[in-house]
Computed example of a mutant assay.
Amino acid sequence: MAFSLNEYLARIGFNREARADFSTFQSLHRRHIAAIAFENLDVLLNREILLDDDSIFDKLVTAGRGGYCFEHNALFTRALNDIGFETHNLAARVLVAKPDEMPPRTHRLVMVQCEEATWIADVGFGGLTLSVPLPLKDGAEQASAQGLYRLEKKQNEFLLLLRQHDHFQPLYRFDLEKQYPADYLMANHFIAHWPDSHFRHHLLAALHPLDDCRLTLVNRRQTLHLKPPRQEALKDNDALYDSLQQRFNIRLDHPRHGVTRDAFSNMMDKLLAQEEAESQ
Protein backbone atom coordinates (compact mmCIF):
# COMPACT_ATOMS: atom_id res chain seq x y z
CA MET A 1 0.00 0.00 0.00
CA ALA A 2 1.26 3.51 -0.84
CA PHE A 3 2.46 5.70 2.01
CA SER A 4 -0.26 7.81 3.65
CA LEU A 5 0.74 10.46 6.16
CA ASN A 6 -2.72 10.52 7.71
CA GLU A 7 -2.68 6.77 8.28
CA TYR A 8 0.80 6.94 9.81
CA LEU A 9 -0.31 9.72 12.18
CA ALA A 10 -3.35 7.65 13.17
CA ARG A 11 -1.12 4.62 13.80
CA ILE A 12 0.97 6.54 16.33
CA GLY A 13 -1.94 8.44 17.87
CA PHE A 14 -0.98 11.92 16.67
CA ASN A 15 -4.34 13.70 16.38
CA ARG A 16 -3.53 17.35 15.76
CA GLU A 17 -2.21 19.32 12.81
CA ALA A 18 1.31 18.22 11.84
CA ARG A 19 3.58 21.21 11.19
CA ALA A 20 7.30 21.48 10.49
CA ASP A 21 8.06 22.75 14.00
CA PHE A 22 9.82 21.32 17.04
CA SER A 23 6.62 20.57 18.96
CA THR A 24 5.43 18.29 16.14
CA PHE A 25 8.90 16.77 15.67
CA GLN A 26 9.30 15.91 19.35
CA SER A 27 5.78 14.52 19.66
CA LEU A 28 6.09 12.37 16.54
CA HIS A 29 9.35 10.88 17.85
CA ARG A 30 7.89 10.03 21.25
CA ARG A 31 4.61 8.68 19.90
CA HIS A 32 6.29 6.54 17.24
CA ILE A 33 8.30 4.52 19.77
CA ALA A 34 5.23 4.22 22.02
CA ALA A 35 3.04 2.75 19.27
CA ILE A 36 5.27 0.73 16.91
CA ALA A 37 7.41 -1.99 18.43
CA PHE A 38 10.99 -2.80 17.65
CA GLU A 39 11.08 -6.49 16.64
CA ASN A 40 12.94 -8.92 14.40
CA LEU A 41 10.36 -11.63 13.69
CA ASP A 42 10.88 -11.55 9.93
CA VAL A 43 14.59 -12.32 10.24
CA LEU A 44 13.80 -15.42 12.30
CA LEU A 45 11.04 -16.44 9.90
CA ASN A 46 13.49 -16.14 6.96
CA ARG A 47 11.35 -13.47 5.31
CA GLU A 48 13.09 -10.85 3.22
CA ILE A 49 12.87 -7.36 4.73
CA LEU A 50 12.00 -4.91 1.95
CA LEU A 51 13.10 -1.31 2.40
CA ASP A 52 11.07 0.63 -0.14
CA ASP A 53 8.63 3.11 1.40
CA ASP A 54 5.48 1.28 0.33
CA SER A 55 6.61 -2.11 1.70
CA ILE A 56 7.60 -0.60 5.04
CA PHE A 57 4.32 1.30 5.30
CA ASP A 58 2.34 -1.84 4.47
CA LYS A 59 4.09 -3.82 7.21
CA LEU A 60 4.43 -1.30 10.06
CA VAL A 61 1.25 0.73 9.52
CA THR A 62 -1.32 -1.26 7.55
CA ALA A 63 -0.45 -4.67 9.02
CA GLY A 64 0.26 -3.38 12.53
CA ARG A 65 3.66 -5.03 12.79
CA GLY A 66 6.96 -3.67 14.11
CA GLY A 67 10.44 -3.81 12.65
CA TYR A 68 14.03 -2.78 13.19
CA CYS A 69 16.09 0.33 12.49
CA PHE A 70 16.05 0.29 8.69
CA GLU A 71 12.26 0.09 8.73
CA HIS A 72 11.49 2.36 11.70
CA ASN A 73 13.75 5.23 10.72
CA ALA A 74 12.77 4.99 7.05
CA LEU A 75 9.09 5.30 7.97
CA PHE A 76 9.77 8.14 10.40
CA THR A 77 11.92 10.00 7.87
CA ARG A 78 9.28 9.65 5.15
CA ALA A 79 6.69 11.15 7.50
CA LEU A 80 9.00 14.04 8.40
CA ASN A 81 9.68 14.76 4.73
CA ASP A 82 5.97 14.76 3.91
CA ILE A 83 5.33 17.27 6.70
CA GLY A 84 8.07 19.56 5.40
CA PHE A 85 11.15 18.84 7.53
CA GLU A 86 14.61 18.77 5.98
CA THR A 87 16.27 15.40 6.68
CA HIS A 88 19.66 13.82 6.05
CA ASN A 89 20.11 10.03 6.19
CA LEU A 90 22.98 8.72 8.35
CA ALA A 91 24.46 5.39 9.45
CA ALA A 92 26.18 4.34 12.65
CA ARG A 93 28.59 1.70 13.94
CA VAL A 94 27.00 -0.11 16.90
CA LEU A 95 29.22 -0.37 20.01
CA VAL A 96 26.84 -1.84 22.62
CA ALA A 97 28.41 -5.30 22.45
CA LYS A 98 31.92 -3.81 22.90
CA PRO A 99 33.38 -5.23 19.67
CA ASP A 100 37.12 -5.93 19.57
CA GLU A 101 37.44 -4.27 16.16
CA MET A 102 35.66 -1.38 14.48
CA PRO A 103 32.21 -2.71 13.42
CA PRO A 104 30.51 -1.91 10.09
CA ARG A 105 27.77 0.70 9.68
CA THR A 106 24.70 -1.40 10.45
CA HIS A 107 22.37 1.12 12.08
CA ARG A 108 20.18 3.76 10.45
CA LEU A 109 19.41 7.15 12.02
CA VAL A 110 18.46 10.57 10.68
CA MET A 111 19.65 14.16 11.01
CA VAL A 112 16.87 16.76 10.98
CA GLN A 113 16.90 20.52 10.51
CA CYS A 114 14.24 22.15 12.67
CA GLU A 115 13.78 25.73 13.84
CA GLU A 116 17.31 26.82 12.89
CA ALA A 117 18.89 23.92 14.79
CA THR A 118 20.22 20.47 13.88
CA TRP A 119 18.98 17.34 15.64
CA ILE A 120 19.57 13.62 15.68
CA ALA A 121 16.47 11.44 15.62
CA ASP A 122 16.40 7.68 16.06
CA VAL A 123 13.21 5.66 16.62
CA GLY A 124 14.76 2.25 15.92
CA PHE A 125 17.40 1.28 18.50
CA GLY A 126 15.39 -1.26 20.45
CA GLY A 127 15.21 -0.93 24.22
CA LEU A 128 17.80 1.86 24.20
CA THR A 129 16.03 4.03 21.63
CA LEU A 130 16.14 7.79 22.17
CA SER A 131 12.92 9.06 23.74
CA VAL A 132 13.08 12.39 21.92
CA PRO A 133 15.44 14.08 19.44
CA LEU A 134 18.92 15.07 20.63
CA PRO A 135 20.70 18.29 19.55
CA LEU A 136 23.63 17.56 17.24
CA LYS A 137 26.37 19.28 19.22
CA ASP A 138 29.27 18.26 21.40
CA GLY A 139 28.20 17.73 25.00
CA ALA A 140 24.44 17.67 24.31
CA GLU A 141 22.56 15.70 26.96
CA GLN A 142 19.00 14.44 27.25
CA ALA A 143 17.45 12.78 30.29
CA SER A 144 15.06 9.90 29.64
CA ALA A 145 13.52 6.87 31.29
CA GLN A 146 16.48 4.83 30.03
CA GLY A 147 19.06 7.13 31.64
CA LEU A 148 21.05 10.16 30.52
CA TYR A 149 22.02 10.32 26.84
CA ARG A 150 25.12 12.26 25.91
CA LEU A 151 26.60 13.16 22.53
CA GLU A 152 30.36 13.72 22.23
CA LYS A 153 32.27 14.85 19.18
CA LYS A 154 35.39 12.84 18.38
CA GLN A 155 37.27 14.56 15.53
CA ASN A 156 34.97 14.01 12.51
CA GLU A 157 32.57 11.67 14.31
CA PHE A 158 29.98 11.76 17.06
CA LEU A 159 29.67 9.21 19.86
CA LEU A 160 26.30 8.55 21.49
CA LEU A 161 26.51 7.36 25.09
CA LEU A 162 23.97 6.41 27.74
CA ARG A 163 24.61 6.72 31.45
CA GLN A 164 23.22 3.87 33.51
CA HIS A 165 24.46 2.68 36.91
CA ASP A 166 26.74 5.71 37.30
CA HIS A 167 28.80 5.18 34.15
CA PHE A 168 28.45 6.02 30.45
CA GLN A 169 28.02 3.15 27.99
CA PRO A 170 28.87 3.79 24.31
CA LEU A 171 25.90 3.00 22.07
CA TYR A 172 27.10 3.89 18.60
CA ARG A 173 29.34 6.24 16.61
CA PHE A 174 28.51 8.02 13.38
CA ASP A 175 29.69 10.73 11.00
CA LEU A 176 27.64 13.03 8.80
CA GLU A 177 28.26 11.30 5.49
CA LYS A 178 25.00 11.06 3.57
CA GLN A 179 23.67 7.54 3.16
CA TYR A 180 21.86 6.30 0.05
CA PRO A 181 19.28 3.52 -0.35
CA ALA A 182 22.00 1.17 -1.60
CA ASP A 183 23.94 1.66 1.64
CA TYR A 184 20.95 0.57 3.70
CA LEU A 185 20.17 -2.34 1.37
CA MET A 186 23.66 -3.73 1.86
CA ALA A 187 23.65 -3.29 5.66
CA ASN A 188 20.13 -4.69 5.97
CA HIS A 189 21.06 -7.79 3.97
CA PHE A 190 24.17 -8.29 6.10
CA ILE A 191 22.49 -8.18 9.51
CA ALA A 192 19.49 -10.23 8.32
CA HIS A 193 21.56 -13.02 6.74
CA TRP A 194 25.01 -13.05 8.37
CA PRO A 195 25.11 -16.28 10.43
CA ASP A 196 26.59 -14.56 13.51
CA SER A 197 24.09 -11.68 13.54
CA HIS A 198 22.35 -11.47 16.92
CA PHE A 199 19.11 -10.84 15.02
CA ARG A 200 19.33 -14.45 13.80
CA HIS A 201 19.85 -15.94 17.25
CA HIS A 202 17.32 -14.18 19.50
CA LEU A 203 13.74 -12.96 19.35
CA LEU A 204 13.99 -9.28 20.30
CA ALA A 205 11.23 -6.78 21.00
CA ALA A 206 10.89 -3.40 22.70
CA LEU A 207 8.18 -0.80 23.25
CA HIS A 208 8.24 2.57 25.04
CA PRO A 209 4.61 3.32 26.08
CA LEU A 210 3.66 6.92 26.80
CA ASP A 211 2.20 6.31 30.26
CA ASP A 212 3.95 3.09 31.25
CA CYS A 213 7.42 1.66 31.74
CA ARG A 214 9.68 0.57 28.93
CA LEU A 215 9.16 -3.07 28.00
CA THR A 216 11.80 -5.32 26.42
CA LEU A 217 11.98 -8.94 25.38
CA VAL A 218 14.76 -11.43 24.63
CA ASN A 219 13.29 -14.79 23.64
CA ARG A 220 10.96 -15.64 26.55
CA ARG A 221 12.60 -13.24 29.03
CA GLN A 222 10.35 -10.19 29.33
CA THR A 223 11.49 -7.17 31.35
CA LEU A 224 9.44 -4.28 32.67
CA HIS A 225 11.97 -1.54 33.38
CA LEU A 226 10.84 -0.32 36.78
CA LYS A 227 13.28 0.57 39.56
CA PRO A 228 14.44 -2.12 40.05
CA PRO A 229 13.55 -3.85 36.76
CA ARG A 230 11.03 -6.68 36.96
CA GLN A 231 11.88 -9.67 34.77
CA GLU A 232 9.46 -12.43 33.90
CA ALA A 233 10.15 -15.78 32.24
CA LEU A 234 7.15 -16.44 30.03
CA LYS A 235 6.08 -20.03 30.57
CA ASP A 236 5.67 -21.21 26.97
CA ASN A 237 5.37 -20.17 23.33
CA ASP A 238 1.65 -19.48 23.67
CA ALA A 239 2.29 -16.97 26.46
CA LEU A 240 5.00 -15.35 24.35
CA TYR A 241 2.74 -15.16 21.29
CA ASP A 242 0.01 -13.51 23.39
CA SER A 243 2.44 -11.05 24.98
CA LEU A 244 3.73 -9.85 21.62
CA GLN A 245 0.17 -8.93 20.69
CA GLN A 246 -1.15 -7.65 24.02
CA ARG A 247 1.92 -6.04 25.59
CA PHE A 248 4.04 -5.08 22.58
CA ASN A 249 1.16 -3.99 20.31
CA ILE A 250 2.28 -6.29 17.45
CA ARG A 251 -0.50 -7.62 15.23
CA LEU A 252 0.10 -11.21 14.16
CA ASP A 253 -3.12 -11.88 12.24
CA HIS A 254 -2.38 -10.10 8.97
CA PRO A 255 -2.65 -12.47 5.96
CA ARG A 256 0.75 -11.43 4.59
CA HIS A 257 2.73 -10.00 7.50
CA GLY A 258 1.28 -12.06 10.33
CA VAL A 259 2.31 -15.49 11.62
CA THR A 260 0.09 -18.27 12.92
CA ARG A 261 0.43 -19.53 16.46
CA ASP A 262 1.69 -22.92 15.23
CA ALA A 263 4.27 -21.43 12.87
CA PHE A 264 5.46 -19.10 15.63
CA SER A 265 5.77 -21.99 18.09
CA ASN A 266 7.80 -24.03 15.61
CA MET A 267 10.11 -21.07 15.04
CA MET A 268 10.64 -20.56 18.78
CA ASP A 269 11.27 -24.26 19.42
CA LYS A 270 14.08 -24.22 16.86
CA LEU A 271 15.47 -20.96 18.23
CA LEU A 272 15.50 -22.12 21.85
CA ALA A 273 17.01 -25.48 20.90
CA GLN A 274 19.78 -23.60 19.12
CA GLU A 275 20.31 -21.36 22.15
CA GLU A 276 20.56 -24.39 24.45
CA ALA A 277 23.04 -26.12 22.13
CA GLU A 278 25.24 -23.02 21.97
CA SER A 279 25.29 -22.70 25.77
CA GLN A 280 26.65 -26.23 26.24
Rank of each mutant, 00 (worst) to 15 (best):
K178M: 12
H167N: 11
F190Y: 10
H167L: 02
Y184S: 07
L162V: 13
D166G: 15
Q179E: 09
L162S: 06
L171P: 01
Q164K: 13
D166S: 12
H167F: 13
R173F: 01
H165P: 00
N188R: 06
A182M: 11
L176Q: 12
D175S: 15
P181T: 13
M186V: 05
E177I: 13
N156G: 02
N156Y: 13
L185M: 15
E177C: 03
Q169W: 15
Y172S: 04
L171A: 08
A187S: 01
E177F: 05
D183V: 05
L176E: 14
P170C: 03
Q155W: 02
P181E: 11
K178C: 10
F168N: 00
L161F: 02
L159G: 02
M186G: 09
L162C: 10
Q155Y: 06
N156W: 07
P170V: 08
N188H: 03
F174I: 04
L160A: 09
R163N: 08
F158I: 10
A182C: 12
A187V: 05
Y180D: 12
Q179G: 06
K178N: 06
Y172P: 15
H189A: 08
Y172H: 06
E157G: 01
F168E: 11
Y184P: 06
A187I: 06
Q179C: 14
P170F: 07
F190V: 07
L176R: 08
L176W: 03
H189K: 14
K178L: 13
M186P: 04
H165G: 04
F168S: 06
P170T: 12
R173G: 09
Y172V: 10
F190C: 06
Q169T: 13
N188W: 02
Q179V: 05
H189I: 01
Q169N: 14
D183I: 15
Q164E: 04
L161T: 08
R173L: 14
D183F: 12
Y172C: 00
F158Q: 08
L159A: 03
E157N: 09
Y180Q: 13
H165Q: 15
H165K: 14
L176H: 04
D183R: 00
Q164N: 06
D166F: 04
Y184L: 00
L162D: 03
M186R: 00
A187G: 06
Q164A: 14
F190M: 14
L160C: 11
A182S: 15
H165E: 08
N156A: 15
A187C: 12
L185H: 10
N156K: 13
Y172M: 11
H167G: 12
A182V: 09
E177K: 01
L160W: 11
H189Y: 03
Q169A: 13
R163D: 07
H189V: 08
N156F: 03
P181S: 02
D183N: 09
F158L: 12
